[in-house]
Amino acid sequence: MNPAAQLGPLNPGDVVSAALRLYRDRFKTYLKLSALATLWLLGGLVGLVLLIALPVAMLSTLGSSFLPIIGGLGGLVLGFLALLYGSAKYYQLSGVMGRLVFCDLVNRPETASAAQRLLAPKLGQFLWLGFLLFLAYMAAYLAASLGALIAGGAVGLLIAGMFTALINGTVGGILGGILGLMLGLGVFVLVLIWILARLFIADAVLAIEASQDAGGSLSRSWELTQTSVWRIQIVFLAAFLIQLPILMVTNYFPSLFFAFLPDNTAVLAASQGIGLLLSLLGSVLTLPLWQAVKAVLYYDLRSRREGLDLELRHPPEQTNP
């Protein structure tokens, strides 16, 4: 009998508690993976800068004004490739963390290296998913703005017209403006939150489900989160609250402290450098938490929608989730 597989659907709070617990149980593994992921992303960025700066610097010693531009452009193309590779590794390693958490949760633990090997062929898919998510967020942003504009504008104008006729133009204008703005803001936030929640677990799906590609993971996330948008919001808020203390130590305190330092270029540069390092540390520490939350949420949603926990109670030999 396997106790973890009986967990079944979870409360929003328990999703976060379980995620935190699983993170702490293999803290070193996750921290290593997270540091590696962050280094890859950072490496991509540094690569981009270096690949642009080096050709420009070298070619400008030749005295021509034309060659450095060509060199810079060439460097940009190569540097962009470096950045893409770095981000792909970042997404992939994040996926590895989610996968490890899920495997622990259903009592089929995997080692980090095994998970990395399994997900190695999906590197391109992870990058593609990152790009698709980026597009989706942009679309969400546009849709939310448009919705807000239409709803807020229409209602605002209607109210303004009504009160102008009833009282006078000033009152109508002010009331219409305020109410329209509030409604617009509400619509904007709701639409954005709704779409973000629907796509929240896409990278966990890609990492956990063997046959899934980037597009498939997106639609799977969309399908699984169908009836749970509100619960995901609560999970999101609780996880956000829990990561605050960590960010407080690594991000907010230092920046407050630096604000009181004397105005001096050397001190400023040093404090900026330290601040950057600390905030990197903060994101290294919080990344596994978010990946764990996604993985536990994935388990929760599959139990709710598909009875995953019921099937796992006596796992038949050889089924891969």
Partner: peptide, 12 residues
């Protein structure tokens, strides 16, 4: 025990 997640949710 309640767990830190549930307590965070309650607090929110």
């Amino acid at each position: 025990l309640a767990g830190v997640g549930s307590r965070a949710v309650a607090l929110v």
